[in-house]
Design a binder for these strands. Structure first.
Lengths: 220, 220
DNA sequence: TAGATTGTTAATCGATTAACAATC
DNA sequence: TAGATTGTTAATCGATTAACAATC
């Protein structure tokens, strides 16, 4: 499923495990770039992240050669490559549907302000909220969603509605032509294969925490 | 690191990949139990989840034998076992620190109301918020955090503060004796090995979505 | 140049899948 | 009982690690 275009125009499968690490690389490199660090070697970066240098170099080699022998990686350069690989070069036009606490939290998430994710509109069905401006973005009526999506070539829709509305909103987003859905409602959305869905299961990580605490309890 | 006690009192390592799937099993079984489904076979359940029946049975076999030959699994029974494995049998006393939008979203997250996670207090440093009651839980002053933790044997602390306060709050939680931290602030907390941290990197899944959209773009 | 570090090949390790005897 | 389905062993597959020639 997941692949990257190589020089020859061929397409290569990227292991899911590698895909999961790319955002982590992006995060650490962004951090280093912010601190104006110029270069880093694979063992240094790997140690920070908590993986092996081999794994880091192996992962990067899926996409090309971004290092310099005897020197390491120029952080600015590598961050640029990872950003390109992640598709962050061009702004992704996004809308958010559902202005609850979670929706507001995402709209004000500090990481998004500098990244290339552009919320261009917000939708809700509550007349008291419609017309409000949140983080400089206007809240529009849900009835305008579909036409807005088509008119503005929106690529990604974020669902932060209650469960009860989520599938309906997903349908509207798909009819409006979005290519991806970032879903925070805790249910499995039904979507066509052509649409990419990323589901954030907030509670899963709490169950993992619970499991790990339980393990510690048993061991001692 | 992760393990489960076997009958003999010995401890067995559980692969991280299995740990990540346990909450998924829990979620699907809860859903089935809610619909009063009584039994399910491994191929049926696996198909719902999108894995192989082999993998499901292999995973469960890390912990014991919960099925019935020729019959399948009793949903109520298996859910009970998974809950026990995840450490959900006894309520986990939790506090949340940081009443922003994200904090409020988590406190009102529908999944937590029926699960065994008990928020018993909320903390903030904003005098306008202290004293408020959110979802029947009082907001206390952050200055009371440490003594409250010790007095009430709190096991888990949830951090939903801004980045700038997160490490300081983590330190207070640790001094107060929590065993686990569920962290939503986008930074790497420094904690002793004895404390389990689960970090929710909301933006990582958006980068994954971006990558997958990019891949589709390249393929077509 | 000598030292350092990459990118990559080969070896190892672990996780997933297939198959089937056990048995309800 | 016969059919169904488990739990588990063995085979396969893929991912991680180790090692090193290439080279800056």
């Amino acid at each position: 499923m997941d692949s990257i275009q190589t020089g020859s125009g061929k397409v290569k499968q990227i292991p899911e495990a590698v895909i999961k690490r790319l955002p982590v690389y992006h995060r650490y490199l962004t951090e280093l770039a912010k601190r104006d660090v110029e270069r880093i070697s694979s063992p240094e970066l790997a140690a920070k992240i908590g993986i092996t240098a081999s794994q880091l170099r192996q992962d990067l080699s899926c996409f090309g050669s971004f290092g310099h022998q005897g020197y390491g990686y120029r952080i600015h350069e590598l961050l640029g490559e990872i950003s390109r690989i992640l598709g962050l070069e061009n702004e992704i036009p996004m809308v958010l549907v559902g202005v609850g606490h979670l929706g507001r939290a995402i709209l004000s998430y500090p990481n998004f302000k500098d990244k290339k994710f552009g919320f261009i509109a917000i939708f809700d069905n509550n007349p008291l909220i419609i017309g409000e401006i949140i983080e400089e973005i206007p809240v529009l009526a849900i009835t305008e969603l579909e036409s807005y999506l088509i008119k503005n070539n929106v690529e990604v829709g974020v669902i932060t509605t209650p469960i009860s509305a989520a599938q309906e909103v997903a349908n509207l987003l798909i009819q409006g032509g979005v290519r991806g859905i970032w879903n925070f409602a805790p249910l499995a959305l039904k979507v066509p294969d052509s649409v990419v869905v990323e589901h954030v299961h907030i509670s899963e990580s709490l169950l993992e925490l619970s499991f790990k605490l339980q393990q510690k309890r048993l061991k001692s």
